[in-house]
Amino acid sequence: MGSRAFIDYVLPHLVDHPDDVEITESEGDNDHVVYEISVHPEDMGKVIGKRGRIIRSLRTLTRAASQGEDRPASVEVVD
């Protein structure tokens, strides 16, 4: 339970191709955990959303979910 479980749960709900969702963890600046998310090319626009609304919401909630964990978590979309 926590930020990783959150992103694992939510992301497949936002796309048309849930089987193509991949999430990997990497080290970010300032001792952040970065969840690099990769989705089917057709779903790229969906996880970002118009004017970035969806990715912004994902980041806000992922950060909230990481409160109480060792390191703050953030989200990046990768090709």
Binding site: V10, H13, L14
Partner: peptide, 17 residues
Amino acid sequence: QTLDALQELTRTAVQRT
């Protein structure tokens, strides 16, 4: 702000479902 984000993601997920 976090509540607004939760609502945004919920609406998107529900519309998809």
